[in-house]
Design a protein around this nucleic acid. Sequence first.
DNA 1: ACAGGGAACTCATATAGACGAGTAGCCGTC
DNA 2: GACGGCTACTCGTCTATATGAGTTCCCTGT
Lengths: 262, 262
Amino acid sequence: MPAQTTAALGALDPTSDRAVFRQIADQLREAIDKGRYKEGDKLPSETELVEHYGVSRMTVRNSLSVLQGEGLVVSEHGKGVFVRPRPPVRRLASDRFARRHRDQGKSAFTVEAEAAGSRPEVDSLEVKEERPSQDIATRLGGPRRVLARRRRYLLDGRPVEFATSYIPLDLATGTPIAEPNPGPGGIYARLEELGHRLDHFDEEIRARMPSPHEVKTLRLAAGVPVIHLIRTAYDTEGRAVEVCDTVMAADAYVLNYQLPAT
Amino acid sequence: MPAQTTAALGALDPTSDRAVFRQIADQLREAIDKGRYKEGDKLPSETELVEHYGVSRMTVRNSLSVLQGEGLVVSEHGKGVFVRPRPPVRRLASDRFARRHRDQGKSAFTVEAEAAGSRPEVDSLEVKEERPSQDIATRLGGPRRVLARRRRYLLDGRPVEFATSYIPLDLATGTPIAEPNPGPGGIYARLEELGHRLDHFDEEIRARMPSPHEVKTLRLAAGVPVIHLIRTAYDTEGRAVEVCDTVMAADAYVLNYQLPAT
DNA sequence: ACAGGGAACTCATATAGACGAGTAGCCGTC
DNA sequence: GACGGCTACTCGTCTATATGAGTTCCCTGT
């Protein structure tokens, strides 16, 4: 049985000017950090904490909401508050778009995930023509209309990322790129077949807190940021042929880049 | 005068099963998104919101703490709750370690910041020998002891990043690398002068919520994640000569990488 | 053996009230 | 005019209490 007693917790310091609910949060955080409560363990119930510290329930709840905001714990209605388990992590290497990775019949996501022993899924396909936003239009060199390809990626049933690719309409119409499934090697393979030999990608990375919509789509727990990656693909003539806007659950990803020292 | 009235806010829907404090947070969030409260504007005071919605003050505070957790607003004791201003952003290009950027008398950070019109500062220097953590040791190929160089970077007085470089002790002792100021071009220039010609860097990027210590060091507002970047520098013989562990305020950075399509 | 009811636990939401402490402006005194 | 204090406003913390709702498990009646 996991430790769900208050044995791991100390007493309050009434002389401290640190707010009581912060002191309690500090103690719980420390106990979690030191492994006295392990991943998935149930913390003491609110009532138990009330008794242990001799404070009101609101104060205890206040402490717990601090830890929840930090993403350290998750509460489950009717069951208890649990130390949040760290999910498996997906590593993205900087050579993930190398041509040699493109000739399989499956998508890069699927191949990688299966290699890592996870069950990959891709859903919520949407492929349609749109007027691009100001930002996307600028990145693509100002096309009036684009093809937008939206999809969401899941690992073992858990959504980890959703992405939208924007391709200038004149490159996409009438090609497999406009199909829901563009075929082996993905749209980069198709673009090259159409004579747009890819030269390089630019990636722009931000990290921020998710919008409520992103929380929903990625089923994010409280306190999990997102990594926002915007990739622009350029062909050998210097033309931007695709912009891919990706939002990833930050707790599910590590990004890897290799830079030459030049 | 900025809109700090409740004019921009609607009424509650008592038939909704959405919690009252969430409804209030939704309305405030929408008003901020739509620009009815602009950056730096003061929101209605808690008392005003209490009167407008006819709920208790705790409920209003609950709503505001939701928005604070999302990083949308900051509260200032005795003054009010304000829409958080977006700070200026520092862009990190993937060629930032190219040799051609190394010959100036100043550090890369200083040069970049001044070019962007900001006032750079570097502080809390600490240079000392240590036993490396397991992780750092592994990345460096297992040295017993390392030189750790810690520093913090500020822009216009605001801390934006702190970093620790770890260099195997046998490379560093008795060289300018062990000095507080390693000289123009930084330690990479010194390493190359010592015959360790740099070949490439590996960068590993994560995003997560900050620890309390990081909140303090970077003076982070609630709801601002950090970008955690671990860079390993390799020389032409494939030896790892430095690991740099950097924690950045995510709202102050955009990372840029250029990948060859290979 | 099993289905159902209900007790006993969990967290979620909300109210009302109190006191503390930081800020800013007004106003009178010196 | 400058200083100092008063006051009214702000958010911060904490208590006490009530109700609702989801989960678990036992016990009882069939």
